[in-house]
């Protein structure tokens, strides 16, 4: 399979870094492009364009880290973007549709809910609705 356009949604976890590295390696083979996005979810009691400074600063910090890892360790330029949305899942799919990506690559943390391993709500939504193949990187 060839992956010319890869989307890497991130949340700031360690798994994201490995997912990004993997995405870069896959894209490099085809001289492709990698986009990384962070989604700030906005509660319904706020307008969608509400600027929540601590959230934006946190997102900026995560995207700066992603850019520096890509540049310094992989010598590759990654496009990063911060989005605001009501829910992360549809925002990621919307981004994938708009960019016409060939692959979504996501890092997955080991999370437990009620004593059971849980993927949360975003990953299942992306798996269900993705227009392209999805690879999960589980650390």
């Amino acid at each position: 399979m060839e992956f010319h356009k890869v989307l890497v949604p991130v949340t700031g976890s360690e798994a994201d870094v490995e997912a990004l590295r993997l995405a870069i390696r896959l894209a490099k083979k085809e001289k492709g492009k990698v986009w990384s996005v962070y989604v700030i979810t906005i509660k319904r009691a706020l307008p969608l364009d509400a600027e929540i400074k601590p959230e934006i600063e946190k997102a900026d910090g995560i995207m700066d880290k992603m850019e520096s890892i890509a540049e310094e360790e992989e010598e590759y330029e990654v496009d990063t973007d911060i989005l605001q949305a009501r829910d992360a899942g549809p925002a990621i799919i919307d981004e994938a549709v708009e960019r016409g990506v060939d692959l979504i690559l996501m890092g997955v943390k080991y999370k437990k809910r009620f004593g059971q391993f849980s993927l949360g709500s975003v990953v299942p939504y992306v798996l269900k609705n993705s227009p392209c193949p999805v690879i999960l990187y589980h650390q």
Partner: peptide, 19 residues
């Protein structure tokens, strides 16, 4: 992978208005 094109559902209210 979904075969039919993805569409935001009515009432989903999931938006990406701002980069």
């Amino acid at each position: 992978m979904q075969t039919t094109p993805w569409q935001p559902k009515p009432g989903d209210r999931v938006f990406r208005p701002r980069r």
